[in-house]
Design a protein around this nucleic acid. Structure first.
Lengths: 183, 183
DNA sequence: GCATATATATATCAAAATGATACATATAGC
DNA sequence: GCTATATGTATCATTTTGATATATATATGC
């Protein structure tokens, strides 16, 4: 999916700055996708050039201006068109485009070359990491309005539910099978 | 994790060609990681330059020569050194480096902009896709020797078990909740 | 009180990776 | 006989990353 489409999709749930888009990928969407500043800022500028978004500069005393982007009518049209194309390509290719790169699992795969102590540490660190993730994802308390506009979407709840199930399944497996790897 | 380390790790389970490395990322390791030819071939050449691997060219009549790479002693040392560094960085950073980019979940996230029919199709296509994946991952029948050298590793079985649990959990969730998204 | 770390905020860029394409042939299906 | 897929290596423009720079405010610890 093009970065343009992803940014427009996020802006379709409410106006946001580049920094806030990045925050979303570090928080609520970290199980789904990621984008770096080097991709986000140029994309927002490109969307500005094409009038797919508008920008309001909020002066903040002593902090750099906050540039809040709002999707335009033209942008919303582009978003819908692009999503339909993406969905159609999906269905045709039979490839759902999920890209997973897990350094944890690579370390496990190559664990023959590591000592048992290191492997044990990696596994237990991973388990506590997964528990933290679960706490974070289940958190329902107060949050910034920008992040909340994502969190309250029906689709977002669907995805959080799925992510929760996946993390729990992984956690359960690791706790049950961690002994089978080392010795 | 550096591409060098990943290729060395795969070669540590037996000699392989660039094409076979790619095949592994399309098949048994598709749940873990991916690499393109544009990354694999230059990396193998770089490893050759540094004498971390050796290469035997098998002439095949009418097909291009098959270049089979074997890890050297120097390469095995580098692999172990790099893995320890990676494991240590992991533990220090608290970041397990998993990178997930799911176009499927993005489509779901932005599904407000799609028709119910398209959403339903995406969901049911995804469900049958997951079922295919499960069949593939559970397959224990005959396979090329190169792929088998990966499959028979203890770590590999651990990872396949984990992948199976994750896919099953996701499948169960989708089947149970698919109705909650559309209407 | 002072130093250090973290959060807010945008921007840039070298290095790395992708995705597409090119080339050449064999086999399998229709 | 045609077309699609599989085997196999290689290249390259475009995209993305990951690190860094810049600037300030606030919170934490000693």
């Amino acid at each position: 999916m093009q970065t343009d489409t992803i940014c427009l999709g996020l802006l379709s749930t409410g106006p946001k700055s580049g920094y806030e888009i990045k925050q979303i990928f570090e928080g609520p969407l970290s199980e789904i996708y990621s984008l770096s500043y080097g991709t986000i800022y140029p994309t927002l500028n490109k969307l500005m050039d094409g009038k797919f978004v508008t920008c309001k500069q909020h002066a903040q005393d002593k902090k750099p201006d906050k540039k809040v982007y709002t999707i335009s009518k033209k942008g919303l049209t582009l978003l819908k068109d692009n999503l339909i194309i993406d969905a159609t390509n999906y269905l045709r290719s039979g490839n759902f485009g999920d890209q997973v790169k897990s350094e944890f699992l690579l370390l496990i795969l190559f664990s023959k070359n590591l000592s048992h102590e290191v492997i044990d540490t990696i596994l237990s660190q991973r388990i506590s990491f997964a528990k933290q993730k679960l706490e974070l994802i289940k958190y329902e308390g107060p949050i910034t309005p920008e992040l909340d506009s994502i969190r309250s979407e029906k689709a977002s709840k669907f995805i959080r539910g799925l992510a929760t199930e996946l993390i729990e399944a992984g956690l359960k497996y690791l706790e049950k099978n961690k002994g089978k790897l080392g010795k």
